[in-house]
Lab assay of single mutants.
Amino acid sequence: LTDEELVTMSVRELNQHLRGLSKEEIIQLKQRRRTLKNRGY
């Protein structure tokens, strides 16, 4: 997933992508998404 996709994707879509990932990967992705959102994309 690109940063842009992460930010513009709805939470529902995101959760579908996260299905099948490990807990660590999910946590990393969610942190990255929060960081991007805070940057004001």
Rank of each mutant, 00 (worst) to 15 (best):
L1K: 02
L1G: 00
L1R: 01
L1I: 09
L1D: 01
L1S: 01
T2P: 03
T2M: 03
T2E: 03
T2K: 04
T2N: 04
T2S: 11
T2V: 01
T2F: 02
T2I: 02
D3T: 02
D3I: 03
D3M: 03
E4G: 06
E4Y: 15
E4S: 08
E4Q: 10
E4T: 08
E4R: 11
E4I: 12
E4W: 15
E5N: 05
E5W: 05
E5T: 05
E5H: 06
E5F: 05
E5Q: 15
E5I: 07
E5G: 03
L6S: 00
L6D: 00
L6T: 00
L6W: 01
L6N: 00
L6Y: 00
L6F: 00
L6C: 00
L6G: 00
L6P: 00
V7W: 05
V7Y: 07
V7P: 01
V7Q: 06
V7A: 10
T8Q: 12
T8S: 14
T8D: 06
T8P: 01
M9H: 03
M9Q: 01
M9E: 01
M9F: 04
M9V: 03
M9W: 03
M9K: 03
M9Y: 02
S10Y: 01
S10F: 01
S10K: 04
S10W: 00
S10V: 02
V11R: 15
V11G: 07
V11W: 15
R12A: 12
R12G: 07
R12N: 09
R12Q: 12
R12H: 11
R12I: 07
E13A: 08
E13S: 05
E13Y: 02
L14A: 00
L14G: 00
L14N: 00
L14V: 03
L14T: 00
N15Y: 14
N15E: 11
N15H: 12
N15R: 15
N15G: 07
N15A: 13
N15S: 09
N15K: 15
N15W: 14
Q16D: 10
Q16W: 10
Q16H: 10
Q16A: 13
Q16F: 13
H17S: 05
H17T: 05
H17Q: 05
H17R: 14
L18S: 04
L18V: 06
L18Y: 09
L18F: 14
L18D: 01
L18W: 05
L18A: 04
R19F: 07
R19M: 11
R19Q: 10
R19C: 04
R19Y: 07
G20K: 08
G20F: 08
G20I: 04
G20S: 06
G20L: 07
G20W: 08
G20H: 08
L21T: 02
L21S: 04
L21I: 04
L21F: 07
L21V: 04
L21Q: 04
L21H: 06
L21R: 08
L21N: 02
S22T: 12
S22D: 06
S22V: 04
S22E: 06
S22L: 05
K23C: 09
K23M: 10
K23W: 08
K23S: 08
K23V: 09
K23H: 11
E24M: 10
E24N: 09
E24P: 08
E24S: 12
E24V: 09
E24W: 11
E24F: 09
E24Q: 12
E25R: 05
E25W: 04
E25G: 04
E25N: 05
E25A: 09
E25H: 07
E25P: 00
E25F: 06
I26G: 12
I26Y: 05
I26K: 13
I26S: 08
I26Q: 15
I26E: 04
I26F: 04
I26P: 00
I26N: 03
I26M: 06
I27C: 13
I27F: 12
I27S: 09
I27Y: 11
I27R: 12
I27M: 12
Q28V: 11
Q28P: 02
Q28W: 12
L29S: 02
L29H: 04
L29Y: 06
L29A: 06
L29K: 02
L29I: 15
K30M: 15
K30W: 15
K30T: 08
K30D: 03
K30F: 15
K30P: 00
Q31F: 07
Q31N: 10
Q31E: 14
Q31M: 10
Q31S: 09
Q31T: 09
Q31H: 10
R32Q: 03
R32K: 06
R32Y: 04
R33I: 14
R33Q: 07
R33L: 14
R33C: 14
R33M: 09
R33D: 01
R33W: 15
R33Y: 15
R34Y: 06
R34S: 08
R34L: 07
R34V: 07
R34A: 14
T35D: 15
T35P: 02
T35Q: 14
T35I: 14
T35H: 13
T35M: 15
L36A: 04
L36E: 01
L36V: 03
K37S: 04
K37F: 08
K37D: 03
K37P: 01
K37C: 15
K37V: 08
K37G: 04
K37N: 05
N38P: 04
N38H: 08
N38F: 06
N38D: 12
N38W: 06
N38V: 06
N38L: 12
R39S: 13
R39I: 14
R39D: 09
R39Y: 10
R39P: 10
R39E: 13
R39N: 14
R39T: 12
R39A: 15
R39Q: 15
R39M: 15
R39F: 09
G40Y: 14
G40A: 11
G40H: 12
G40R: 05
Y41C: 07
Y41N: 13
Y41S: 11
Y41E: 13
Y41H: 12
Y41F: 13
Y41P: 11
